[in-house]
């Protein structure tokens, strides 16, 4: 027996390691929504280094922008001042609209909807693989963040909390292939499931007789218990209606710009 084991020790080792790895994976698959001790430890240990690297790149980028591109600074300054004036005017308009909206909401007793408190967090690291879409934010369980909490920016839905460590969390973006959320077309309330496809989204299980046009806004439906209803998800960019079948295929471009994620809001479960 010992001779046999010695002779085939590499084969036995390979089989044992592969079976153990498969069991390890399937065990964690069952508890995929929980953050393991190993993940927490790695996140905690590497977070200071990641923050340091982030600081270094930001500083280097600022230095580059400040000193090496002075040639176009005057023109940029003029354009920015112009834009600033335009935005200030727009902001005043929006303040008026917001006040009017607030009064109307009070009148219509809609105050109970969308009353989740929000926590602002900063994105400091991105996914290190090409196949999955996640980012790391600087708020964790110590700040009240929990797995499954929705994350968004002013433009729309970003994703949901996937893993939580005491001072940082990993966010699964809606563009990740394993991400799915209930959504509806804002104008006619046609329902569907939004799935991530890497750089864009698709809306599935939308009945083919529903009138969906390019440019329509897609919002969260509130089903599934993760995202509150009415949050913007994206705009329709392509609608395909095959000659047969129950559903139409809808391609959606997210409203949030995932290439420029800096600050995000984590929506907490408690009321404001």
């Amino acid at each position: 027996m010992l001779d046999w084991l010695r002779k085939f020790r590499k084969l036995v080792f390979a089989v044992i390691l592969l079976v153990a790895a498969l069991l390890f994976y399937s065990y964690h698959l069952r508890y995929r929504n929980q953050t393991t001790f190993f993940e927490k430890t790695v996140l905690e240990v590497t977070a200071p280094l990641q923050k340091g690297a982030d600081y270094f790149f930001h500083t280097a980028g600022r230095w580059w922008d400040s000193y090496l591109w002075l040639v176009s600074t005057a023109e940029q300054n003029r354009l920015l001042l112009e834009e600033n004036r335009r935005l200030r005017a727009r902001l005043q308009e929006l303040d008026e609209v917001a006040l009017a909206n607030e009064r109307l909401q009070r009148l219509l007793e809609f105050r109970d909807t969308m009353q989740l408190s929000a926590l602002v967090a900063q994105v400091f690291a991105e996914d290190s693989t090409s196949w999955f879409r996640t980012v790391v934010i600087n708020k964790g369980s110590a700040d009240g963040v929990e797995e499954g909490m929705p994350v968004m920016v002013a433009e729309g839905v970003v994703g949901r909390i996937l893993r939580v460590a005491p001072s940082e969390s990993r966010v699964l973006l809606v563009t990740d292939p394993s991400s799915a959320l209930g959504a509806l077309v804002q104008k006619n309330r046609a329902r569907g499931i939004i799935r991530g496809q890497g750089g864009y989204l698709t809306m599935e299980f939308t009945l083919r007789q529903k009138d969906i046009q390019v440019g329509d806004l897609i919002v969260t439906s509130g089903g599934g218990g993760v995202f509150p209803s009415g949050l913007p998800v994206g705009h329709v960019v392509r609608v395909g209606r095959p000659s047969y079948g129950l559903f139409q295929s809808v391609t959606v471009l997210p409203t949030a710009d995932f290439f420029r994620l800096e600050e995000v809001m984590v929506l907490r479960r408690e009321q404001k």
Binding site: A21, Y25, F38, S128, T129, F132
Partner: peptide
Amino acid sequence: ALACFALGCLMDVFGGNVLGLYGLVYA
């Protein structure tokens, strides 16, 4: 073999995947 499994587990943490996915793949 063990280093590859460990590398895979690290990749899972940094990629936000289910722990063990890349461990199994790399092994």
